[in-house]
Amino acid sequence: MRADLSDLNAFLAVARARGFRDGARAIGASASGVSEAVRRLEAGLGVRLLHRTTRSVVPTEAGARLLERLGPALGEVEAALDVVNGFRDRPAGTLRLNVPVSAARLVLPAIVPPFLAAYPDIQLEVTAEDSFVDLLSAGCDAGIRYDERLEGDMIAVPIGPRVQRYALAAAPAYLNRHGRPEHPRELLGHSCLRGRFSSGTMMVWEFERGSELVRVEPRGPLLVGVGAATDLAVDAAVAGTGILYLFEDWLRPYLERGELEPILEPWWQAFSGPFLYYPGRRLVPAPLRAFIEFIRR
């Protein structure tokens, strides 16, 4: 059968949002209109695509299979139509980025305002999460991640600082009570504020000085989700609860104000900065192309 593209787009929005109201909001339509589009699509296909309850909307097995193939396909249609954007005086449209919380906090603030000022016809949508996602299935044009998490078929463009460091710090009051570590292994005897990734993996604290590399799995009274709850750990460190291991740039304001004191700074490990990445197998939409050119400049 021939399915209307608007009906397919409505199904895609509802399936991703897990709800008719949120799906309708995502594409700027009414909930009733989106619901009718999905019913029309199901009737034409002769198969149920969504399980509907009063609390949730979940794709059926058939719906999940359609969603898996439909996201990339509609992305290609959008990219093909976007070719005409190149004939405009100024690129227009929506640019959707998926980034880690650290990039939303430390990298994008210096880039987003001047970019939007330079391209007033572009609307930027940013989703911040620390799990690695399939960009096309998630409806995103590009993402920001660190090089060890990039897939092989992606094109990567440097963005933000090219070298970053993990810093170790605690409140002066905590260090006055418990002492100042002189070697990373001494952290095993301290209260440490730890992080856990969304995958469930615990964050390992790594230190390096010369040719010596030390990995520590500390213990402590607080465990937070990396990214979303990191500010809670920072607040706890400032309050004197324990020692924190985090991006140096994230902690710099607290260090400069004296709310936190650097620990073992000669051991702080440096690592390469983040990359903007996008699929190399599709046409590059005009808003993304403008963003790439902007960060390269």
Rank of each mutant, 00 (worst) to 15 (best):
E76C: 07
V83P: 02
A73E: 04
Y119L: 12
R88E: 01
A73P: 01
R145N: 15
A62H: 08
P113A: 07
R105K: 13
C140D: 11
G143D: 13
I111R: 12
G63N: 08
N98V: 13
A118W: 08
D134W: 11
L95K: 03
Y119Q: 11
G139E: 11
V84A: 00
V77D: 03
D89S: 03
R96D: 04
P120R: 03
S102Q: 04
Q123M: 05
C140M: 12
V101C: 03
V107E: 08
A64T: 10
D121Y: 03
N98R: 12
D141H: 14
L97C: 06
R145G: 15
S131W: 11
P114H: 10
S102G: 05
E68G: 11
V84G: 01
N85H: 03
V77T: 00
D130S: 12
A110V: 13
Y119E: 11
R105I: 09
T94N: 05
D89A: 03
C140L: 08
D141W: 09
P120Q: 05
A142K: 14
R65N: 14
L97E: 06
P114Q: 09
E76S: 06
R145V: 15
P72V: 06
S131A: 12
T60F: 01
D130R: 10
E78N: 01
R90C: 03
C140K: 11
L106I: 07
D134N: 14
R65D: 14
A79Y: 02
E125P: 09
E78T: 00
R88Q: 00
E68I: 09
R88K: 02
L135Y: 08
E76A: 10
A128T: 10
G139A: 11
I122S: 10
A73H: 05
I122V: 13
A128N: 12
R105S: 13
P91C: 00
P91M: 01
V107P: 08
V107Q: 06
A104W: 02
F115V: 13
A128E: 12
A79H: 02
Q123A: 09
T127M: 12
F132N: 13
A73C: 04
P114T: 07
E125D: 11
R145P: 13
A138F: 13
A80V: 02
R69G: 12
V133W: 06
S102R: 03
R65T: 15
E125A: 14
V107H: 05
L97A: 10
L136H: 10
R88I: 00
A118Q: 12
V126F: 13
A104R: 05
E76P: 06
R145I: 14
S137E: 15
V112F: 15
P113N: 10
E76W: 02
A142Q: 14
A118L: 11
F87A: 01
A128I: 12
L124C: 14
L66F: 03
E61M: 08
F115P: 14
I122T: 09
L66I: 02
L95F: 04
F132D: 13
L95S: 08
D134T: 12
V133Q: 11
L108E: 12
L135D: 11
S131N: 12
D134H: 14
P72S: 06
E125G: 09
V107L: 06
A117S: 15
A80R: 02
I144E: 09
V126P: 14
E78P: 01
V133M: 08
G86Q: 03
A110S: 15
